[in-house]
C-alpha cells in the first residue's frame, strides 16, 4: 500500500504537475507585492518528494552511482531553495559614524521561518572613505567597523560593497547610500536625561541640493527642520576626490517661526527644551542579507554538475565515439 503511494509520488506525471506548480509559484511571486513564500516553497517541497520517491522506486538508481548522486544533489538544491525562501532576511539600515547597530531595520523583508539572532548582532560604524574618480565616479568603499564575534570577542575590520561583515550569519554590506549626519543633544525642560542622537540627511551626492530633513526631538512636540549648508566642493567632477565631511559648514535650524544658523557647540531654544548642535559626521547605509542556504546551494550545484559530467563521461567512454 505504502509502496504504491511512493510509486505514484515518483511518477513523471506528478513531476509535470509539480513543475506547473513551480511555474505558477514563480508567476505569483513576481506579480504579488505581499509575502509569497509558500507559493514557491510548497511546490519545491513536492518536487523534492517526487525526486526522492523516484530514487526509492527506480532500480536504475541502485546501480548508477553518479546518476543517483546527481539526483540527491538535485533534491538538496530543491529543499535548500525552499528552506531559503522560508528563512531568508533582507534589510536596510543607516548608521552614523560611531553609532552602534540596534537591530532596528529601516526596511525588512523576511521569510516566515526566520528566527535569526539579529538582536545579538553588535557592530558599530567607525567611519569610511570613498574615493571618486573624475566625473564623480564612485570607487571602492572602505568602511571601518568594530564588532563582537559569536564568542563575544571585540574585533575590528574593513568592509565594503563586496566585502561583508558576517556576524551570526548576517552579512552587512555597505551600500551606495551615505551622507551627512548632524549630531544633536536634546535637553528636555521636563527633566530626565539628555538624549544624544543623529539626524540622517538625504544621501549625498545623489541629493546634493536638498540636504534638509525634518525631525522631532525625542519626547518633544516641536518639529525641527534642519538644513546643511556649505560652500566647499566635496566631490569635484573635474578631478579625483574623496567623500568627506565639509571642513566649514553651517546648520540652518528652523523650529516654528524661529530660524537659526548653528555651528558646533551652539544651541537653540525650543518650546519644550534646548537643542544643542554637537557637530557633523557622516552616515553609511548598509544592506543586510541573511540566507544560510547559499553556500550549501552552491555546493550542491557544483556537485550536481560534477556528477552529471561523471555520469556522461562513464556513459560515453564505454566505447569509442568513432
Amino acid at each position: 500500500m505504502i509502496w504504491q503511494w511512493i510509486s505514484k509520488l515518483a511518477s513523471l506525471k506528478f513531476t509535470l504537475v509539480v513543475l506547473v506548480l513551480v511555474g505558477t509559484g514563480v508567476i505569483i511571486s513576481y506579480r504579488s507585492e505581499g509575502t509569497t513564500t509558500w507559493a514557491l516553497a510548497l511546490p519545491l517541497f513536492l518536487f523534492s518528494l517526487n525526486l526522492f520517491a523516484a530514487i526509492l522506486t527506480n532500480p536504475v538508481f541502485r546501480r548508477q552511482m553518479p546518476l543517483l548522486m546527481f539526483h540527491l544533489a538535485l533534491i538538496a538544491i530543491v529543499l535548500l531553495v525552499a528552506v531559503g525562501r522560508l528563512s531568508y532576511l533582507k534589510g536596510r539600515i543607516e548608521l552614523a559614524e560611531g553609532e552602534e547597530f540596534s537591530a532596528r531595520l529601516a526596511e525588512v523583508e523576511k521569510g516566515p521561518w526566520h528566527w535569526g539572532q539579529l538582536d545579538q548582532v553588535s557592530f558599530s560604524n567607525e567611519g569610511f572613505t570613498i574615493e571618486y574618480a573624475p566625473g564623480v565616479q564612485r570607487g571602492k568603499t572602505v568602511n571601518s567597523v568594530r564588532w563582537r564575534d559569536e564568542q563575544g570577542t571585540e574585533k575590528r575590520g574593513v568592509i565594503g560593497d563586496m566585502v561583508a561583515l558576517s556576524v551570526h550569519g548576517y552579512n552587512f554590506y555597505t551600500s551606495h547610500n551615505k551622507g551627512f549626519a548632524p549630531i544633536f543633544t536634546w535637553h528636555p525642560d521636563a527633566g530626565g536625561p539628555s538624549v544624544a542622537g543623529a539626524v540622517h540627511l538625504p544621501a549625498y551626492p545623489r541629493h546634493e541640493y536638498s540636504q534638509a530633513q525634518t525631525w522631532t526631538p525625542p519626547g518633544s512636540k516641536s518639529n525641527v527642520w534642519v538644513m546643511l549648508q556649505f560652500d566647499e566642493v566635496i566631490l569635484d567632477p573635474e578631478k579625483a576626490s574623496e567623500f568627506r565631511v565639509p571642513t566649514e559648514h553651517k546648520l540652518v535650524v528652523r523650529a516654528g517661526e524661529e530660524r537659526r544658523e548653528l555651528g558646533p557647540g551652539e544651541s537653540i531654544r525650543l518650546p519644550d527644551g534646548v537643542l544643542e548642535y554637537n557637530g557633523l559626521r557622516s552616515w553609511m547605509g548598509y544592506t543586510i542579507f541573511y540566507d544560510f542556504t547559499l553556500p550549501w546551494l552552491l555546493a550542491s550545484g557544483v556537485l550536481a554538475v560534477g556528477c552529471m559530467a561523471w555520469y556522461f563521461w562513464r556513459k560515453f567512454s564505454v566505447r569509442p565515439w568513432n
Binding site: I55, F61, R62, R63, Q64, M65, L68, M69, L72, A73, A76, P295, W296, L298, A299, S300, V302, L303
Partner: peptide
C-alpha cells in the same frame, strides 16, 4: 550492488565539504 547508501554518504559529505569551503 546497491549503491544508494554509499551515494547518500558521499553526496552529503561532499556537499558539507564544498559548502564549508565556500
Amino acid at each position: 550492488r546497491d549503491v544508494r547508501l554509499r551515494a547518500l554518504a558521499l553526496t552529503s559529505s561532499l556537499v558539507v565539504m564544498i559548502g564549508l569551503t565556500v
